[in-house]
Amino acid sequence: MLLGLIAPTGGSACILGRDCRADGLEIRRRVGYLPGDFAMYPRLTGAEMLGHLAELRGGTSAAVRKALADRFGAELDRPIGELSTGNRQKIGLISAFMHEPEVLILDEPIAGLDPLVQQSFHALLDETAARGGTILLSSHTLSEVERVADRVAILRRGRLAEVDTLENLRQVAVHRLEVDMAGGRDSDSGLAGVPGVKEVRREGDHLLISYEGSADPLIKALAAHDVSAIRSRDDDLEEVFLDLYRDRGEGS
């Protein structure tokens, strides 16, 4: 919709201060786009496809294209139809960045990329942001969102459920601790009553404790027990977001 592929049923959208409907060409000149499912002419090589897309922009710097290709280790000399998903995705990334756009719209950009390329891609995102660029990135990989995003919007059934900084979302979100107790079976008694704790569940040999806000009351309560190990399950952002969905879900 931002790029004019589908029309809104109502409302308006602006990028770079210009209306997406009225100034579509100008916006598309200044925006880089990577579709979620990046389709190209299978018989063309990557270099030919990028050349074509560059011509649609009235020409872009060959040096920038080359630098991006080197950076991602893209294979530009083979027909696109013969490339793996990851190698096709690299070409998509080059096409989105090759005209050095001020705004980027990237749909699932790391799909199929190996971790090293993901890393260099994220470094490129940092550089673009440092240059003053704006990046709108959609992803189901929440660890990626956590790594690159300043502000996060959560869509739920096509509606915006939440827009906030990652920091703030974390504050209100539920955290999880995995605790191993040296004591007996009923050593979890009492923990459920600690302020902030939402749930205490036994999972094999560990306790899985969910809590909100400060960890302090929980830690103090655990101090009375014989704890052999504590692990944070927090990096599993997915759980956090799932909770967010559940908590706010039915009201919206």
Partner: peptide, 14 residues
Amino acid sequence: ESGILGLLLAHPVS
């Protein structure tokens, strides 16, 4: 249908 048109029209082409 293959999605190529969506890509081309995300470029500055009417």
